[in-house]
Design a protein around this nucleic acid. Structure first.
Lengths: 354, 354
DNA sequence: TTGTACGCGTTATCAT
DNA sequence: ATGATAACGCGTACAA
């Protein structure tokens, strides 16, 4: 026997077959529970397989079967509670259908987006769910993958492609309703914190804010709109925008006529703003009312509890998974689907009628 | 030609080779930049490859090369800021070495842990970093994988194996120091919120708490130790333990003699506790002091800013990656390494001398 | 019920 | 500088 290679070589079907005195094919049948195998043979094979600690080779298997029972999920930022909930929804559905989910994180960089798409595509995932910010590079590459016949579903991504499904929350409307809520409470000077030009989602919310102001005959005051760097800050967890909220609010408080209400692009930004307001010795909501966005678990435990806009995050994940399954499930081309989900205003104690 | 199959078949090296008038091997050389290829040939091949939108088949490639340049990271809960930071640290190092990171989430279930290990192992990742809660099933399976020669690094997991490296934060000491801090401020009745029996990490912190009490001659009062369900609550994001903190604190407030200080197992739990304290009309830190754990970004923006214990999370990720690279890098068996990192008490305004 | 032959797409190795 | 061959580990298709 040529047993020189002392390096632990992974066990293969052939190894099992040899020890069990059958053909590799029989072992395959046993392990995949396909075809007929004599009960006695079956047990013998299983015993050997277990004894040798066999693990099947997914590469060879995938290569032969032309599918891997695997789905890739590309996330821009794993620290984002939205991402977590989304992943949960996706997994929930995918699990039921025997798919394994591989998550790649791109840290909101277009370059890493590409890397993630490619890595996943190269490893022949059966489908791809993408929930990162849109970029020219990324969109083009996605188009290529779609062209190659890889099922792709976009989540909350500002990019449409005829071959890829889309699921998103109606952030525009959500922003509109948050703002309208403040207006209906009698506010006329409403600030916005967290404007960024790079993020499609934030931009949508901001547009809703603008539209609500206009629809109700309120002037848009540029000084009431404050930012947050658009760039990718390596040090800072992408979504942990407490600092943006804090700095932004400080800026607003310096104004000659400060806003009586503020709409923050997300709950963390809102928390940062709350922190700045308290630091200045002002009260919420009496002096300044505040609305967040997302309804993260934290939102109901701040003081005061935060009025916010809830988006059906897990639901988006579930739908994304279902859209994908539709595609992996059929050999024929599948017509594109798009689903925009409603957001819901959750009124708590950080807003009150003037 | 048997060109009947109208289904878009993925482009292969052979397709490119045919169109470029060379052998597949040459194409491989060009695409992998290995070996000598005439410049002219090279360009022709590249042109064809680009025109056909070629994507290499990672399965075939991995099968042949016996490595995939891929590392798996198993996380118990993606919503946990700890997990996010950890992943960031891991990626940071792995990227530099050309590895792609695939993340699997197990939602803190031992069964899903196994599924993740297996999926990753089957797809022949070059290594595995595991940061989920320990379980009998999981530990056994990990031992098997280690036995098969797969490089494994454990992060903050309460399980030691001679073939797997370990990196963790010193949660015991952190819990000790948090408690000692409160003691040094004059507190004698110190509560603990968030005891769970299933979580190794939480347990360590709790043990530190107990030890500090004992070392300073304080009695352990069982009524001051409150819980949080140990089970897996499907509806609740795993780490979002605001509710546990909230409910736990309410319970403590009902006591005849309530604690003057509380140590919460993590910052979110602390935030929930803060919320309950305020609801009861009490002040922090005057009436009740509170210490959290983790120093999440939020902690410095609560009111009052939270005293907490910071653990070097990203650093743990980096080290885990380095431990892994050590193993993937060498054919020989590598001696086990273990690194326990110090935590650091961050004193803010939620604690003050009595 | 079991086995044989072949191919999935790639690369290592040797030959030219 | 390029090509032919074989093999990675598995499953499909067919034969026995």
């Amino acid at each position: 026997m040529s047993q020189r290679g002392e390096v632990k070589r992974p066990i293969t079907l052939a190894d099992i077959a040899a020890q069990a005195g059958v053909a590799p094919m029989t072992v395959s049948r046993v392990l995949n529970q396909s075809g007929y195998v004599h009960e006695e043979t079956r047990e013998r094979v299983l015993r050997v397989a277990r004894a040798l600690n066999y693990r099947r080779n997914g590469l060879a298997r995938g290569l032969k079967r032309q599918r891997t029972d695997t789905v890739g999920l590309v996330l821009g930022d794993i620290a984002n509670p939205f991402a977590a909930e989304l992943a949960r929804g996706v997994r929930e559905r995918l699990d039921e259908h025997g798919y394994t989910l591989f998550i790649c994180v791109s840290e909101h960089s277009a370059k890493e987006d590409l890397a993630a798409f490619d890595a996943l595509a190269d490893h022949r995932v059966d489908g791809l769910i993408v929930a990162t910010r849109a970029s020219k590079l990324g969109n083009d590459r996605l188009a290529e993958l779609v062209g190659m016949g890889i099922p792709v579903v976009l989540v909350g991504r500002d990019f449409r492609h005829e071959g890829a499904d889309l699921v998103a929350a109606d952030n525009h409307k959500g922003g509109y309703e948050a703002t309208e809520h403040l207006i209906s409470l009698g506010h006329k000077h409403i600030g916005f914190i967290g404007i960024t030009l790079t993020s499609g989602i934030g931009l949508r919310r901001f547009q809703g804010y603008l539209e609500a102001l206009r629809d109700h005959g309120l002037a848009v005051e540029e000084s009431l709109i404050v930012g947050g760097t658009g760039g990718t800050d390596e040090q800072m967890p992408g979504y942990s925008t407490e600092s943006i909220g804090f700095e932004g609010m400080r800026q607003l408080l310096k104004l000659g006529r400060r806003p009586t209400a503020v709409f923050a692009r997300n709950d963390f930004t809102a928390v940062g703003a709350v922190s700045a307001i308290k630091e200045a010795g002002l009260r919420i909501p009496e002096d300044i009312a505040i609305v967040g966005y997302d309804d993260v678990p934290l939102a109901s435990h701040t003081s005061p509890p935060l009025t916010t806009v809830r988006q059906p995050t897990r639901e988006q994940g579930r739908i994304a998974a279902e859209f994908l399954l539709r595609r992996t499930g059929s050999r024929e081309p599948v017509p594109r689907e798009e689903r925009i989900l409603r957001c819901e205003l959750v009124v708590r104690e950080s807003t009150v009628a003037r």
